[in-house]
C-alpha cells in the first residue's frame, strides 16, 4: 500500500481534538506525531490548546443564591412528606 502524504499544518490543527480525545486511528496518530516532531508552530498550537483546556476546566461554578437554596429545601420537604405518607403531611 502506498504511504499517504505527510500532513500539512492546516490539516494538523483540524485533527487536534481527535488527537486529544484519542480518536485517531493508529496510523493517523503516527502521522500527526511525525508532523509535530518537525513543526514548532503546530507544537505551539497544541500547547495553546492544552492551556485553553486547562483554563476552561478551572472556571468556577456560580454559587447557589440562598433564596434558590430555600426553594430546593421546599422541594425536598414536599417529597419527603409525600413519601412518608399522609400521617406526616404538613397542615395545608
Amino acid at each position: 500500500m502506498l504511504r499517504r502524504q505527510e500532513l500539512v499544518c492546516q490539516q494538523v490543527v483540524e485533527l487536534v481534538s481527535d488527537y486529544l480525545e484519542d480518536a485517531l486511528s493508529p496510523r493517523d496518530r503516527r502521522r500527526f506525531e511525525r508532523h509535530l516532531a518537525i513543526c514548532p508552530h503546530c507544537t505551539v498550537y497544541l500547547a495553546q490548546m492544552h492551556e485553553t483546556l486547562r483554563l476552561t476546566g478551572r472556571l468556577v461554578p456560580e454559587d447557589l443564591a440562598p433564596e434558590v437554596a430555600d426553594e430546593f429545601t421546599e422541594i425536598f420537604r414536599r417529597w419527603s412528606a409525600e413519601r412518608n405518607g399522609p400521617g406526616d403531611r404538613p397542615p395545608p
Partner: peptide, 21 residues
Amino acid sequence: PAVDAARFNAGGGWSTPPEQW
C-alpha cells in the same frame, strides 16, 4: 475550520503561526 484559512499559505503551512504563550 478551527483556524482561519488566511493564516496558512497555499501549501497548508502556517503563514501567521501562533506565538508561544
